[in-house]
């Protein structure tokens, strides 16, 4: 008798599971973490996913999925993300690499830089705008681990406030790593457009030892606000990346530092 129960249970699971496998209803097969979900006024289900369990004061790889009420997908509506820090007396946003639809995963990968942690100072939301309809998700941003600094703001010699954010290596290892940084400028409290055409020079250093490493490649502009180069970590531990930032021959900043730890 017991065996028959098991058989039914298995059959049920099988039917249920196969139903989910229906071509048009693929749930984003993601080893991503669901951050929040909501519905637009017209009933579209909008979900925000993250590549990492926690959202940090750093560059965060986020994904948006948009489904109809019946969980089917309808083309690729335009989606934009706006992070907002509400500090009571004031609000500000932060740099974003806006989502671009990826047909193979039916997801919108995006990059969002959170510039400070959630807490007593204020709270973060991310607003997704889907075809003119908005869904706002409250998000909790944690500080990056002690002795790390993945994003920083500096005021250049041209008086403009810039942010520089580490995109890669997201999983640093000993040896030569791909280095990607994102540079944005603060046009207003709510607008942080990408900056093209700067010259960056990178110098790694281990602050607890005082030594650097050889064979680094200065990041060169690629697209958006991204600059790609190479960084050589000769050992694990605390590493500080010193950036010299130039615009043409004008030095915007002599030393802007990001800190890693692995």
């Amino acid at each position: 008798m017991k065996n028959i129960q098991y058989l039914f249970a298995c059959l049920f699971v099988f039917l249920f599971a196969s139903c989910k496998d229906d071509e048009n209803n693929v749930i984003p097969t993601v080893d991503h973490f669901l951050v929040a979900e909501g519905k637009t006024a017209s009933g579209k289900k909008v979900k925000l996913w993250s590549a990492e369990k926690d959202l940090l004061v750093a560059y965060n790889k986020l994904y948006v999925s948009v489904q109809n009420a019946d969980s089917s997908y309808t083309g690729d509506p335009a989606v934009t993300l706006t992070p907002v820090m509400d500090m009571g007396t004031m609000k500000h946003s932060s740099p974003v690499e806006q989502p671009v639809y990826d047909a193979s995963t039916k997801l919108y990968p995006a990059g969002v830089v959170f510039s400070m942690p959630s807490g007593d100072m204020g709270s973060w939301t991310v607003t997704a705008k889907v075809d003119q309809e908005e869904v706002t998700f409250p998000v909790n941003i944690k500080s990056s681990p002690a002795n790390t600094k993945y994003t920083t703001t500096f005021v250049g010699s041209d008086g403009t406030a810039y942010t520089i954010t580490l995109v890669d290596p997201s999983g640093p290892k000993i040896g030569l790593n791909d280095l990607v940084v994102l540079v944005n400028r603060r046009e207003s409290m709510m607008s942080f457009p990408a900056v093209q055409g700067l010259t960056l020079e990178v110098t790694p250093e281990m602050p607890s030892m005082g030594h650097g490493s050889p064979n680094n490649v200065n990041p060169a502009f690629t697209s958006g606000g991204r600059y790609a180069g190479k960084v050589n970590f000769t050992m694990t531990g605390d590493w500080r990346l010193h950036f010299k930032v130039l615009k043409g021959s004008t030095v915007l900043a002599q030393d802007v530092a990001l800190d890693l730890l692995f």
Binding site: I174, M235, T236
Partner: peptide, 15 residues
């Protein structure tokens, strides 16, 4: 290998 243990900072490892 070498693993270093600086005061007040993370340990450092390399071959």
């Amino acid at each position: 290998t070498m693993t270093m243990y600086p005061d007040g900072a993370s340990e450092m490892f390399m071959y």
